[in-house]
Design a binder for these strands. Structure first.
Lengths: 168, 168
DNA sequence: GCATGAATTGAGAAGTCATCTCATTCGCTC
DNA sequence: GAGCGAATGAGATGACTTCTCAATTCATGC
């Protein structure tokens, strides 16, 4: 299902578009290409910025519309990494996310066993899975060490800042 | 860790507040109580509405601030059920969510095996987990049957409507 | 290659959710 | 009960996303 290179992804997109009576536009291809070239977990804003460096102007509305479409087509996964906006990611091989509450680092992990159990859960519930996200938030190794070094006194400090990270 | 009734939850909140030099206000207790009385997966807006039926007025700002605090205190879990806003849920016993893309139904499922594997994943990555969410989106049994009954012709229709659900 | 019609785009307004600011109020401690 | 500082309310503000509609562009048939 998941494409393993850009060319395959483009073919998959074209197939999806024609199957649904939709058009293959330069904007749609540009967005797909940008995602493959830059990788990571970009937000819609980041994708728009990256495109603005290229020759083709793509409006924000189109970026959002196209991202929805690519998710629909099974080419992208959308997740909320606890930052108040969505992140998109190419569907290469599925993985889950460990998100550090203190420094924001995202660690990608893979677990075929969990995937298997998920399918089992769905089957038992008569549910047909189309996509899934597993996000574990906590403290990464580096932050754990830093906190340990700081001693016990301000144990609550990081917790507070983690919640208030929005605007302080 | 998780409280099994309201009284215990209130004690847990009071303990957390005093430990961190914070105050126990009627607003905070009212929000906690509303969550226990109404259950489900309410959004901040729904909680504010439910409170507006009671004798105590609580501003939206306070609802948001208090929900953050309750998550911090380990009394609530916050998740994004793919609707563009957060949902909150009392921490009774942990479960995961199957979310139907077509009708929006949320099915709660439990899997101790998955929890165990998650802990293992974290341990291997040197990561200390504090909370986690597993959300699987797809089609519930009822919707699968309805689609099957409708025949093959409009196979793409539900997919489209699922994405555009925001404003139609 | 060109007309045709419908899908798509851009621009900016609008909407939604969440947070911030600051004067006022209220818990808690002494 | 006084006083300090935390918490609240009101409304502005901000971030992100979607909507509207005229103009444009793609795909199809001739």
């Amino acid at each position: 299902m998941a494409a393993s290179n850009y060319e395959e992804a483009e073919r998959q997109l074209r197939r999806y578009l024609s199957k649904n009576g939709l058009r293959c536009t330069v904007e749609r291809l540009a967005i797909l290409k940008s995602l493959w070239e830059n990788g990571g977990h970009p937000s819609a804003e980041m994708i728009a910025q990256s495109l603005s460096k290229g020759p083709l102007y793509v409006s924000r509305a189109t970026v959002y519309r196209t991202l929805d479409l690519l998710v629909e087509a099974g080419l992208l996964t959308c997740s909320n990494l606890g930052e108040g906006h969505r992140h998109y990611e190419i569907n290469v091989d599925h993985h889950d996310h460990l998100i550090c509450r203190r420094c924001g680092k995202i660690i990608e992990v893979r677990s075929p066993e969990i995937e298997t159990l998920q399918r089992k859960l769905c089957k038992e519930a008569g549910f047909e899975p189309l996509s899934h996200t597993l996000e574990i938030t906590g403290l990464c190794g580096a932050c754990r060490r830093e906190i340990a070094d700081d001693g016990e006194s301000d144990n609550g400090a990081w917790r507070r800042s983690a919640v208030r990270q929005h605007g302080e």
